[in-house]
Design a binder for these strands. Structure first.
Lengths: 130, 130
DNA sequence: ATCCAAGTACGAAAGTTTTCGTTGACATTA
DNA sequence: TAATGTCAACGAAAACTTTCGTACTTGGAT
């Protein structure tokens, strides 16, 4: 058995990953402080436990050489984003990237700048792939 | 208080909604048959219970006038898709639709036809909004 | 009338996710 | 060295999701 790939992170796990992606390797304390800013009523041990579980699931790597262990996201943010998008694509969009893009644009008012950025992306994509 | 909006459907709930969107209003039996095709080992009462819960959560409407109750998705597929995308946008993409579209395109090999469809959509979008 | 098939309702178990109290180890400093 | 603060580990409770067995109801066929 080759060791199965990382599972889809849960909501709470994703919040933690967001901190790790934004600030790089962190201690539990760091993550707790960051999350406290937006969700003040979150206990320290709650974050700790979640991060321990994430280490078991291999969503994060843990450096135990210091007393305060240092955690780091195992996958790049973009990789996880692709995983989540791919998952949603299958579960809710019948695999149609076109429909997904369409709903993405109407889910959020998209500015003219963003639209042209996307257009450029499409150009590059067409050159690179296809 | 206006009565809070429908919660994000869970994985199992979304599978049921997919059937309802595809085939229109259905009995539990109908949904069970449809899901059995891809997941043969799913009990009838499991689907029943899920659909009862979904009725409580108001993810579906239930017509009890027949002995076999008839269920219907309360929100259009596109509406739920927008909800799910909007949710993912916040949770994993920091609200950036551009990044999300980018990852969507690389999550799945997108054909030339799809790319040009998306391009047309962008045109329409720019005309309609902005 | 009785039996059977097809339904719903209910409750509980199993699984997963989120929460946090408590304990014990280790460091800092008074 | 004793008190204080910081940390990981653990276990368990709470909340949510998924599963299904069992009981009860109803309509139709014999």
């Amino acid at each position: 058995m080759p060791k199965r790939s990382a599972p889809r992170p849960t909501d709470a796990e994703l919040e933690i990953l967001n901190v790790l992606w934004q600030r790089g390797a962190c201690t539990v304390r760091d993550v707790h402080r960051a999350i406290s800013r937006t969700k003040p009523a979150t206990g320290y041990t709650t974050i700790l436990k979640l991060m321990q579980i994430m280490a078991e699931k291999e969503l994060v790597r843990r450096d135990e050489s210091q007393r305060a262990h240092v955690y780091e996201a195992r996958l790049a943010r973009e990789q996880t984003q692709r995983q989540l998008i791919g998952d949603l694509l299958e579960r809710a969009f019948d695999g149609s990237a076109t429909k997904l893009v369409m709903q993405a644009l109407s889910a959020k008012k998209t500015s003219a700048e963003e639209l042209s950025t996307i257009r450029e992306m499409l150009d590059e994509f067409e050159r690179g792939e296809s």
